[in-house]
Amino acid sequence: MIRALPILLLAAPAMAQDISVQNPRAYGWWLGDELVQQVQVTLPPGAALDPASLPRARAVDYWLDLRAVERQDDGNRISLTLRYQNFYAALEPSTRQVPHFPMRLMDGSRLDLPGFSYVTSPLRPILAPSRPDQLQPDPPYHLIDSRPTLMRLALSGVALLAGLLMLSRHQGWFPFHARAARPFTRAARRLRRLPEPEARRSLHRAFDAAFGRVLIGADLDRFLAQKPQFAPLAERLRGFFAASDARFFGAGSAPDQDIAALARDLGAIERGRR
């Protein structure tokens, strides 16, 4: 008993609370009407309502929905507006009892939202025959003009697409992720099947592309300074250009060279394989 005392004390209703209620009128409600209950709670200083204990919009019973709960705080004074909707299809005037609702304060003390009762009545005599022409005409319907919405949709689609394009351009994603030009790799692939002078020319075009301008033998040092990754091949490149000079411009002839192998090695360096 003594051990249970603190629990009892906790559960005891707070003394300083002050509830004033404005209930909906007690009579004259029909099926579908909205009943509004206004509750004002003045809390003692320092106390606060546990927001989890507020009533939630829900079906209270099969004949009553709590559609909305609005809360307004003004200092320690809380105004609650509860909007019920009556779904009781009365066959005769009948009193309905809306149950009270327990709430909690943060200190654990309890607070009751008082219930209320109302009388609801049938809309028409229960025995009167029902005819289709008694139905109210349908309310006139309004066509919603969807064009501005579609326009906005299209605009945002375009903006989205443009944004994606810019983003992917900035990030170097799909359409902009073109791989660095690899002239030597391409040349190596192409000149496998070419006979000597064409293969040689083809490799010269690859040098031009890699250098960004036409590369002649005299430029080789500048090329190697600009692309030092090819420096290990310097001797073979010198040999290649010397042979080209002899073959294309010289009066004599030049020894044969394995151009395909040179192109393969250049391509491998270009792809970072060496």
């Binding site: 020319r201 031009d208 036409v214 002649i216």
Partner: peptide, 8 residues
């Protein structure tokens, strides 16, 4: 910079 040598 443009004219290739040896030309094709």
């Amino acid at each position: 910079a443009r004219v290739p040598v040896p030309a094709a």
